[in-house]
């Protein structure tokens, strides 16, 4: 079972994760209005900006984060922002949405000028997250674990980051054992998705480069 301290940490992270979401009016725009490819791209860019702001607010609530060296805080957020965004988007895509919404969202992304070679791995990732049937607690913890990755470029005090990440990993492992007792590999599979996220992050960097070219 989770210790009292671990339960408190879990509740805190889940609350912070649920509290910090993309503003509803912006999310609604994705479904309601029609845009041409360029406007579509601009909307997705605004979404990404809002996503980063929300991510920073969530991260500030992770116990101990604000006590880290300020430049290390920035290095962690810079290194993980794209991965955390993909995780959150995967959660949106695997959630049961009203009829037709998934298609509208998918269509919008496909018509944003992003080339197919980048879109396919992204939707494959969403699918692989969907197959895990992750609980909201697992999404919140996995996002915190992604952000608190000590091996990001320019992080000076990796040991300090590890001291924050380790308890999260322990809580996630215990939570997985408790909630998925019939699937002993569940925790390992979750960690495997972090490797996929790293690959997507690299794809994303290439995608930005190709956008700049065009």
């Amino acid at each position: 079972t989770l210790s009292q301290e671990q339960q408190a940490l879990l509740s805190f992270i889940v609350d912070a994760y649920n509290k910090h979401r993309i503003p509803q009016d912006m999310a609604k725009k994705l479904l309601q209005e029609h845009f041409n490819a360029e406007e579509n791209f601009m909307l997705l860019t605004d979404m990404a900006t809002s996503h980063v702001q929300v991510l920073v607010e969530f991260t500030k609530n992770i116990p101990g984060f604000q006590a880290l060296d300020h430049e290390d805080q920035i290095a962690l957020l810079k290194g993980s922002a794209v991965e955390a965004m993909f995780l959150r988007s995967a959660q949106v895509f695997t959630r049961k949405m009203p009829h037709g919404h998934t298609e509208v969202l998918e269509d919008r992304i496909r018509k944003s000028g992003i080339s197919e070679e980048f879109i396919t791995p992204m939707f494959n990732f969403y699918k692989s997250i969907g197959e895990l049937h992750m609980l909201p607690e697992e999404h919140a913890l996995l996002t915190a674990i992604t952000i608190l990755t000590p091996e990001r470029p320019y992080v000076k005090d990796q040991a300090a980051v590890e001291r924050l990440q380790d308890p999260m990993l322990e809580v996630l492992q215990k939570f997985c054992c408790l909630q998925h007792s019939s699937e002993p590999q569940h925790f390992a599979r979750l960690l495997g998705r972090l490797t996929e996220l790293r690959t997507l992050n690299h794809h994303h960097a290439e995608m930005l480069a190709s956008w700049r070219m065009s």
């Binding site: 900006t49 980063v52 702001q53 929300v54 920073v56 607010e57 957020l77 810079k78 922002a81 700049r212």
Partner: peptide, 21 residues
């Protein structure tokens, strides 16, 4: 790269400010 600077700018501003206020 410019895009990375953009990301860093957003992060720095968000770290200093408070969206909830």
């Amino acid at each position: 790269p410019a895009s990375n600077l953009g990301l860093e700018d957003i992060i720095r501003k968000a770290l200093m400010g408070n969206l909830e206020e």
